[in-house]
Write a protein that binds this DNA or RNA. Structure first.
Lengths: 93, 93
DNA sequence: AAGTCATTTCTATATATCTAGAACAGTGGA
DNA sequence: TCCACTGTTCTAGATATATAGAAATGACTT
């Protein structure tokens, strides 16, 4: 019980990342379909420029909520289940 | 399983509210000590102007995460456990 | 080497957010 | 009534954020 300073710092990042409609949609999408790459994520969102999507994915990965794995010229994204369960299990519901 | 549109709209509001250090501290504070009034909350934070605190509490209550109950000239604030459990059980940990 | 695809970085702009001072409104007490 | 206290609203300024076009980087294909 009780949360430490690191947790609080990460919590702010995670919640800030999720507190924007496009990013929440991305997180929910990745919670349902794992291992999507940049372009695949972009295709499921309505009209988001590549540069904007990149910006959003960076914020999500910087928070620790989304992991990225490079595979050739593709980068695959996944929800980090541990972090999601800790801060926002709603994503996994 | 599966979340509807209302949930998503509320989730954005709740997460946006929590994605700011002062507001997260307020939420954590209220999760630990229930029923604090405006002034009592202000006293536990370092140097936040009354108008700023009011603004933050409004955002938290608008999201549904914090409930407020008027009692005479005081307003007491509490974490809404149902909403917290749904979106951010981390607060209750 | 040249071309294509995936993703990022640069740059800019419009909008939102955080902050607080000052003024205001409601409640209760002397 | 007058004062003190609780909390909100108004206004404004500084900073942050969201967005996207254009140019750049890196990797695979031919």
């Amino acid at each position: 019980m009780g949360e430490n300073q690191e947790d609080i710092g990460q919590a702010v990042k995670v919640y800030k990342a999720l507190g924007e409609p496009t990013r929440l949609k991305i997180a929910l999408l990745l919670a349902k379909e794992s291992n999507l790459c940049f372009t695949a994520v972009g295709e499921r969102l309505e009209s988001v420029a590549g540069s904007t999507l990149s910006h959003h994915l960076k914020q999500l990965t910087d928070s620790g909520l989304i992991d990225s794995r490079k595979n050739g010229s593709f980068i695959h994204y996944n929800v980090n289940r541990e972090i999601a369960e800790k801060f926002a299990p709603f994503l996994l519901a």
